[in-house]
Amino acid sequence: MKSFNLAKFLPCAVLFANGRTFGGVIALLMQATIVFWPVASRWAFQLEERKGIEALLDELSEADGFVESIFRGPVAKIGRAA
């Protein structure tokens, strides 16, 4: 939740931290105009949100592979015996 607050107040810092130098410079310019600050903030928030979703999907795919490997062994043995 802390990174979402950082995305509100310092969107350029979030983009720089994620290795998006060009995006960070653009966000810094948007912050300087103050009018486009909400746009930069939304951009950084979406980046953080997307990163969290990708991490969750990676975790779920790893768990799916584990379950698949558990059931793959006994089913293969039964198939060979029949």
Rank of each mutant, 00 (worst) to 15 (best):
E48A: 03
E62N: 08
F36M: 13
G73P: 12
T21G: 08
L10W: 04
F36Q: 07
V67G: 00
E49D: 03
M1H: 09
A82K: 15
F9T: 15
A82C: 01
V14T: 06
R42N: 02
V14N: 07
G24N: 06
S61N: 14
E68P: 01
P38T: 02
R42W: 03
I53A: 07
I26W: 09
F66I: 08
E59N: 03
F9P: 00
V14I: 15
S3F: 07
F45I: 06
G73L: 15
G73N: 10
G79P: 01
L10G: 01
M1A: 12
G52H: 13
F36K: 10
A17K: 13
A40N: 07
A40T: 02
T21F: 15
G24A: 08
L57F: 05
W37G: 00
A27M: 05
A76L: 15
P11H: 02
S61E: 14
A17Q: 05
I78G: 00
P11N: 07
Q31E: 06
E54T: 05
V39G: 03
A17Y: 01
I70C: 02
I78C: 01
I78V: 07
R80V: 11
G19L: 11
V67D: 10
N18L: 04
T21S: 14
A76M: 13
G24M: 06
L47A: 10
F71R: 03
S61M: 10
Q31M: 10
A13N: 11
I34Y: 08
E68F: 08
W43L: 11
G52K: 05
F45A: 09
P38A: 02
K77H: 06
M30A: 04
A63W: 03
F66G: 00
L29S: 02
E48L: 09
K8C: 07
L15V: 07
F45G: 03
E48K: 09
A76K: 14
D58K: 09
G73C: 08
L56V: 06
A17I: 01
G65T: 05
F36S: 06
R50K: 08
I78M: 06
E48Y: 04
G65A: 11
I78H: 01
G19M: 06
L29H: 03
A82N: 11
M1S: 08
G24E: 11
M1K: 11
I70Q: 09
A76N: 06
A44W: 12
M30I: 01
E54S: 13
F9G: 01
G23C: 08
A81I: 15
L6T: 13
E49H: 05
A32L: 15
T21D: 12
Q31C: 11
A32K: 09
Q46P: 00
V39H: 04
